[in-house]
């Protein structure tokens, strides 16, 4: 059967447009409600809370989702990495801060590699199951290291300037954190959408067997994606800690779901082969705008999560329904022609 393209405006089916419209809608809606508190500069300032750490984790998650896999252990990886950093720095008495950060990134990489190794070594199991168990494992290790304590007293430039500082740009105060994320995006975009290895990632996610028969080193592709996911999780943990100023083993609980939500909202599919950087960025912006507005109106984390869940389902569901409707209408039209 030929692939179907119904009458539905083509741009609506591009996820990016749908997201852009939603972003604008959200902004103007909340702006009308709270014209003083919900403004663009304030929103920009809030990106440090809602956008950066989750954003980095989502960048990693996107790679895994494109493969058609999933990694639920990212938040735990971030927590373990941050714990390693906090404990090795020991408020200035341990390793120098750069070494602690390096150790943190290595920890993230190692966690990701371990996940990836398990995934390619035990193909009978599913990444979902594997990372469900490493999730408790990583967070458990973080607990064993840190107990109920928290580690903090980080250098001022990290906890203050990076966490809360901003740079004036074109008359706006842009959080430094956000600039870090935005600086990474072009490179990430070029790598994912414009290089051979990015293309191979999509190929492996579209059809793993056929990719292997086409000569791709599928195991290495998977391992790389999971390892990079671990690294991105650690980077996310790095920015999260700079914002909170200290590390507890519970840091970032539930962020894995947010990372998945962002990537899926941005057009990735858990069945693999799809995903876009532009979509991911727009999804991040949308969630930031939405969460910030809801927080202003209700100041309630549960309502926030509720709307994220609703948004996630609707954004996936609505195009499906439109497609089904378009198909039905098309058949009806052909049937009418037949009757004539």
């Amino acid at each position: 059967m030929a692939s179907v393209t119904g009458k539905l405006p083509a741009f609506l089916r591009r996820r990016e447009w749908l997201l852009a419209i939603l972003v604008l809608l959200t902004y103007f809606l909340f702006n009308a409600q709270r014209p003083d508190n919900y403004t663009f500069p304030k929103l920009l300032n809030q990106t440090r809370v809602y956008m950066v750490d989750v954003g980095f984790m989502a960048l990693g998650m996107l790679l895994v989702l494109i493969l058609g896999d999933i990694d639920i252990s990212v938040a735990a990886t971030a927590a373990l990495s941050a714990t390693v950093m906090g404990v090795s720095y020991r408020g200035g008495e341990g390793l120098p801060f750069w070494a602690a950060v390096l150790l943190m990134l290595l920890t993230g990489l190692a966690c990701g590699l371990f996940n990836g190794l398990l995934v390619i070594r035990f193909k009978e199991l599913f990444p979902m199951i594997i990372t469900l168990s490493t999730l408790t494992l990583y967070r458990g290790i973080a607990y064993i290291i840190l107990k109920d304590q928290s580690a903090g007293s980080f250098p001022a430039w990290y906890a203050k300037d990076l966490g809360y500082g901003s740079l004036p740009l074109m008359g706006l105060e842009v959080p430094i954190m956000l600039l870090c994320l935005l600086a990474v995006l072009p490179f990430y975009y070029l790598w994912l959408h414009r290089t051979a290895s990015g293309r191979r990632l999509f190929a492996a996610g579209t059809n793993l067997t056929a990719s292997r028969y086409s000569g791709l080193h599928t195991d290495r592709i998977k391992l790389t994606a999971f390892a990079m996911n671990g690294l991105f999780a650690a980077i996310g943990g790095f920015f999260l800690t700079s914002r909170t100023g200290s590390v507890k083993y519970t840091i970032g609980t539930g962020f894995e779901m947010q990372a998945i939500a962002v990537a899926v909202l941005g057009g990735a599919s858990t069945s693999g082969g799809r995903g876009s950087v532009a979509g991911l960025l727009l999804a991040l912006v949308l969630l930031t705008a939405l969460k910030n507005g809801l927080m202003l109106l209700y100041n309630d984390a549960f309502i926030l999560n509720l709307s994220v869940g609703l948004l996630l389902i609707l954004v996936v569901l609505i195009p499906n329904l439109f497609q089904a409707l378009a198909d039905r209408r098309r058949i009806l039209r052909q049937r009418m022609q037949l009757a004539k």
Binding site: I70, M128, M257, I260, A261, V264, S269, T270, S271, F302, I303, N305, L306, S307, V308, G309, L310, L312, I313, V316, L317, N320, L321, A324
Partner: peptide, 18 residues
């Protein structure tokens, strides 16, 4: 609705807790 199970139940987890 042809929503993938993980996505659907991930979303409904948020919604139901909310």
């Amino acid at each position: 609705g042809r929503v993938l199970p993980i996505v659907a139940t991930l979303g409904s987890q948020y919604i139901l807790y909310g």
